[in-house]
């Protein structure tokens, strides 16, 4: 019973991480119809910038988190401007932007390796100590991640439902021409979506940088997991994506308990492919 509880709590931690990553992918997808392969690399950049501000410059962790998040947002907007926008309206836009964002990922990863080197880095934790949830113990920092994730998701959801800017992103995602005809600046909406998504990735990176080591390739695994999440939940809606993230987190934690660390990723991917054979738009399938 105790191991099961511990497993569920670790599933919660994983699910929170995946939800933050996958919801960023979903925001860009629903607004622009672009799958951003550089999303994991943006997360990694957030962590490195945070480390530089917090540790190398000694300005403190909070400044680091803010700086890392902001830097990721700026890079996200730059990616949109130069690697995505030139291809709007192109017949093969989906495939082309997959390739250009893949190229952006390579540039960011290799760039980070050149700037920061291969030595492992880590951020201090926001708070030290441990927290007990349902009898299972996790670090206080992880508890902050767990608590923050749903708050952020709700904030993004409310933003897209209530605010004019947020609504304009949804409108652009559903009908660009009609959106332009009511005075929405479509390229600006695209930049906002990319910036928001990248900021989310950057923030996730700064939080993860205290739990895992910061390396140029630290974004790959979360990106791949986020891909599983969006395959599972579909990319169409924020709610389905976030829900799927937690489900995958729990499944992963349970799989680790049952079949061990080695077989778990294999089983996860197999599960995803089986899911897709029967539900081509994901379990909670929205529009493809």
């Amino acid at each position: 019973m105790e191991t099961l509880l511990a497993t569920l709590v670790s599933g919660l931690v994983l699910g929170s991480l995946y939800a933050l990553m996958a919801s960023g992918l979903s925001v860009v997808w629903t607004t622009l119809g672009v799958f951003n392969f550089a999303h994991g690399a943006l997360m990694m950049i957030g962590a490195f910038i945070a480390w530089t501000i917090s540790e190398a410059l000694g300005l403190g962790l909070i400044a680091g988190i803010a700086g890392g998040t902001a830097a990721a947002a700026v890079i996200g907007i730059v990616i949109e401007r130069f690697l995505v926008r030139p291809f709007y309206g192109s017949r093969a836009m989906l495939l082309i932007t997959v390739m250009t964002t893949l190229a952006a990922m390579i540039i960011l990863e290799k760039g980070a390796l050149m700037i920061w080197g291969a030595r492992l880095k880590q951020l201090p934790r926001l708070v030290e100590g441990e927290v007990s949830i349902l009898g299972a113990t996790i670090s206080a920092h992880e508890a902050i991640l767990v608590a923050l994730a749903p708050l952020l998701l709700i904030a993004i959801w409310q933003f897209t439902v209530r605010s004019a800017t947020g609504r304009s992103l949804r409108a652009v995602g559903q009908n660009q021409e009609s959106a332009a005809l009511i005075g929405i600046d479509v390229p600006v909406a695209f930049a906002i979506a990319f910036g928001l998504s990248a900021a989310l990735a950057g923030l996730t990176g700064t939080l993860l940088g205290s739990i895992r080591f910061i390396t140029p390739t630290m974004g790959v695994e979360p990106l791949v997991k986020a891909m599983i999440v969006v395959i599972f939940g579909g990319l169409g809606s924020l709610g389905a994506t976030a829900g799927a993230a937690y489900v995958i987190g729990f499944i992963e934690a349970l799989l680790i308990l049952w079949i061990g660390l080695y077989w778990t990723p294999f089983a996860l991917f197999l599960l995803m492919i089986v899911v897709l054979v029967f539900r081509p738009n994901g379990i909670f399938g929205g529009r493809g």
Binding site: W29, V98, I231, Y262, W263, F266, F269, M272, P280
Partner: peptide, 22 residues
């Protein structure tokens, strides 16, 4: 269709890699 082809074929590569690693 579309992006799901990219995701699944890519995930398949990860699947095989995980098999190799495990």
């Amino acid at each position: 269709k579309g992006i799901y082809v990219v995701l699944v074929t890519f995930a398949f590569g990860q699947l095989v890699m995980q098999l190799v690693l495990s």
